[in-house]
Amino acid sequence: MTMNWLKQLSTAWQKNQLQRPELASMFTAPVDEQWVAIDCEMTGLNPKKHHLLSVAAIHINGDKIDTGNGLHLLCRPPVMPEGDTIVIHGLRTADVEHAMSYDEMLGLLLPFISNRPLVGFCPQIDVGFLNPLVKHYMGTHLPNEIIDIRPLYSRRMMGRSQGLSSQAQHLNSILAHYNIPELGTHDAYNDAIMTAMAFLHMR
C-alpha cells in the first residue's frame, strides 16, 4: 500500500469525524503554489501545561506574500501569562484578558488556512498547541500538510558544509543567510512574514 493511498485513507477518516461541514474544503486537495505561513505565541512549549496566546497566518501565492490580508489573532488563555514568560512573548494579562476565545479564533483561522499546506519554523510545536483546540472545535485534527523550513534550509546547504548545527538552523541565522530583514522576533505576525520570506528563497 503506497504512502499516498495511506494518506488518502487518513484524510477520508478525518473527514468522517468532521463536525463542522462548512470546513469540508480543508479536506480537499490543495491548489499548487498556494501555502499559508503560520506562527503562534504561547506561554511555554508544553501544550499539556502551557497555553496559546496568539496566532498569525499569511497566504503565500506563487512567489507573492499577501501581507495585506493576513490574520493576527489574540486569544484569551484559561490562565493569564506570568512575568517570566511575558519577557519572551511580550503579551501581558491586559493584552489578552479580553481577547477572543479559542473557538472564536478558530472560526476565523480555519477557513483562512483551508486546505493550504502550513509553512513554519518548527511548525510541529504550533500544531501541537492548535490540534487539541481544533479537535474540540471541529471533531478532528488539522489535515493540512506541514512544511518545516529547517530541513528545507539544511537540504539547500548540503555540500556547502559538513552538516548544520542546530544554532545554524535558528530562524535568525536563516534570515541572515538570505539577507532578510529581521522584523522583530517573538511576535507571531512578524515571525510568519519572515518565515514566508525565507520559504520563498528555499522552495
Rank of each mutant, 00 (worst) to 15 (best):
L130P: 15
E145V: 14
A196S: 09
P111F: 08
F27Y: 14
G90T: 10
D95M: 12
C75Q: 03
R92L: 11
T28Q: 08
L183A: 08
P181L: 04
F129D: 03
D103A: 06
E22W: 02
I38F: 15
N16C: 10
N61H: 06
P21W: 01
H201F: 06
Q162I: 07
Q14Y: 05
T185A: 15
I38D: 09
H170P: 00
H72N: 15
Q14K: 04
W13E: 15
H59R: 03
T2Q: 12
F129S: 07
A192I: 00
G159Q: 05
Y137R: 00
G68K: 04
K49C: 10
V36P: 07
P123A: 05
P123H: 01
L23V: 13
D39P: 01
M100D: 07
A12T: 14
L9S: 03
L52S: 09
I86F: 04
P151A: 15
I60E: 09
T93E: 11
D66S: 08
A29F: 07
F199A: 06
T185F: 13
P81Q: 13
H136N: 12
D66C: 10
N131Q: 08
P47H: 10
L142Q: 03
G184V: 04
F27P: 03
G128S: 11
L45G: 09
N179I: 01
F121M: 01
V87S: 14
L183M: 15
T85H: 01
L175F: 06
N46Y: 05
H186V: 02
N179V: 02
I147S: 08
C122Y: 09
S165P: 07
A24F: 10
A29G: 01
P81Y: 08
S154H: 03
G83D: 04
E41C: 08
N172C: 05
G70T: 00
F199G: 14
K7F: 13
L91Y: 02
Q169N: 13
R92V: 02
G62S: 09
P132K: 01
V96S: 10
K64S: 13
